[in-house]
């Protein structure tokens, strides 16, 4: 018997089943297809404006910063303001995301822009979020050629452009949107749920920002929810 068979035989013998029982198989198939929601906290069940406000509050509590702009035309200025505030070079790396491609970056003439994944040499990156969850102030980032995963982790400063309309109240709503876009049983290669900048408390439980990922996480919220 190979290892796989041994493990399955051992599980089935412990459960006193053979794996062919129709009611068991049906129960599992139903749950996988129906994916029932469990207990959904009511915290995020709010009208759009209040939901966005909750996202901002929770993200700030997790040491992220947030700024709101009326339209994508204002994103370059928001990025410039952030970089100047921390005295950072006016240079960012971004993916080929359509939304980010449509930003009039020339509105911020001094800003140097490059497109592609990060190899660790870039100080600041810009990504476009798939969505966000107000409940805990969490960004939902999906990996693709347009938003490479390395941009989320290697640069010291991570700027995330988020459409106000994409903020969900709870995780279940965001999961629903992922399923809608990627199909049943499928996900993009990586989904990064990010709640604040990187940190560690491994030395005497003192919390310090900037462990291995970005030291700063800045969210630019675009438009009305």
């Amino acid at each position: 018997m190979n290892a796989r068979d041994t493990v399955f035989a051992s599980i089935r013998s412990a459960l006193a089943v053979n794996g062919q029982e129709a009611p068991r198989r049906r129960e599992v198939a139903d749950r996988l297809a129906g994916h029932p929601a469990g207990v959904v906290p009511q915290r995020g069940n709010l009208p759009p404006q209040a939901r966005l406000a909750l996202f901002v509050k929770m993200m700030e509590a997790a040491a992220g910063t947030v700024t709101a702009v009326a339209s994508i035309d204002e994103v370059p200025a928001a990025v410039g303001t952030f970089l100047r505030r921390y005295n950072l070079p006016l240079a960012v790396r971004r993916g080929g995301d359509e939304k980010l491609g449509g930003v009039p970056w020339s509105n911020e003439p001094a800003l140097e822009m490059s497109v592609g994944p990060s190899d660790g040499a870039q100080l600041t990156s810009v990504s476009h979020a798939f969505g966000a969850v107000a409940e805990t102030g969490t960004l939902v980032m999906t990996a693709s050629p347009d938003n490479p995963t390395t941009l989320n982790f290697l640069p010291d400063n991570h700027i995330v452009v988020l459409d106000a309309k994409d903020v969900s109240g709870d995780f279940e709503t965001s999961i629903g949107k992922l399923r809608e876009k990627y199909g049943a049983g499928a996900l993009p290669r990586v989904v990064n749920m990010i709640t604040g900048p990187s940190r560690s408390a491994d030395i005497e439980q003192t919390l310090i920002l900037g462990a291995h990922g970005p030291r700063r996480l800045h969210v630019v919220v675009v438009g009305e929810p």
Partner: peptide
């Protein structure tokens, strides 16, 4: 914490 900083779902290798 309300949520850890990074919760990552990984599905298969590079596409």
């Amino acid at each position: 914490q309300e949520m850890s900083v990074y919760t990552t779902l990984s599905t298969g290798p590079r596409r």
